[in-house]
Amino acid sequence: MSGLIAQQWISVDGFLAGINGEADVFAAVSDFTASEAHNTALLADIDEVLLGRRTYESFAAHWPTAVDEPMARQVNALPKTVCSTTLTAATWGEHAPARVVPDPVDHVRAQRADGVRTIVWGSVSVMRALLAAGQVDELELFVAPIALGAGTPLMAPGAAPLPLRLTASDTWPGGVIRLRYAVG
């Protein structure tokens, strides 16, 4: 795996969430077993999870107590970093707290120099900043079987085109398609 992979759930028409941040993309998925198995295997090669503040808050409310979920042990054990200019601490239940950094680009550049393999989950503003700075090596999309019509797009309005090269794809139960791209 390359240095940094950004992973997103997305609608077939390119939206990460509804107009008001609704999670309709997730609600459209009837079976998460393939994505859980995929990420369980993927996390064996990951050194760090990088999150934005909002995604961190959502994850920290769920994962520390989700002991019966297939990925919980790995998610809770991996070092986590939260990109935020407002947080001073980022607890993770009874597990090691996440590190807080103000700038995702500076952080990833430093981690890359140390050979750290990082995954960004959700965290749209963090992902977009890293894409704009050329710091994303791979983009992995889990396409849910829903068209939203409007909402939060993958790319920021006015963003430069992003050349991608398909490196892997799978069709999963429930109509989900996994697409892995090399960036650049």
Rank of each mutant, 00 (worst) to 15 (best):
S2C: 09
S2D: 14
S2M: 12
G3R: 15
I5V: 15
S11F: 12
V12Y: 00
D13Q: 08
D13T: 07
G14M: 07
A17L: 00
G18K: 03
G18I: 00
V25F: 08
F26K: 08
F26R: 04
A27M: 10
S30Y: 10
D31A: 07
D31P: 12
A34G: 05
A37M: 06
L42H: 13
L43F: 15
L43E: 06
D45L: 12
D47G: 12
L50S: 03
L51V: 01
R53W: 06
A61T: 09
T65Y: 00
A66L: 03
V67E: 14
P70N: 05
Q74Y: 04
A77K: 06
A77M: 01
L78E: 02
L78N: 05
K80G: 09
S84W: 03
T85F: 06
L87K: 03
W92I: 07
E94Q: 12
H95R: 00
P97Q: 02
A98E: 00
P102V: 10
D103N: 14
D103L: 01
V105N: 08
V105E: 02
D106C: 05
H107K: 01
R109Y: 06
A110I: 07
A110S: 15
R112D: 05
G115F: 02
V116Y: 09
R117D: 07
T118G: 11
V120A: 09
W121H: 15
W121R: 06
G122E: 11
G122N: 09
G122S: 10
S125M: 09
V126I: 05
L131P: 04
A133C: 06
V136D: 00
V136W: 03
F142L: 14
V143Q: 07
P145E: 04
I146C: 11
I146N: 04
A147S: 13
G149A: 10
G151K: 07
T152A: 13
P153I: 04
L154G: 06
L154A: 01
A160R: 01
A160G: 03
P161S: 08
L164S: 00
R165Q: 14
R165G: 12
R165P: 04
R165S: 15
S169P: 00
S169A: 14
D170N: 10
T171C: 14
P173V: 08
G175C: 04
G175M: 03
V176C: 03
R180L: 14
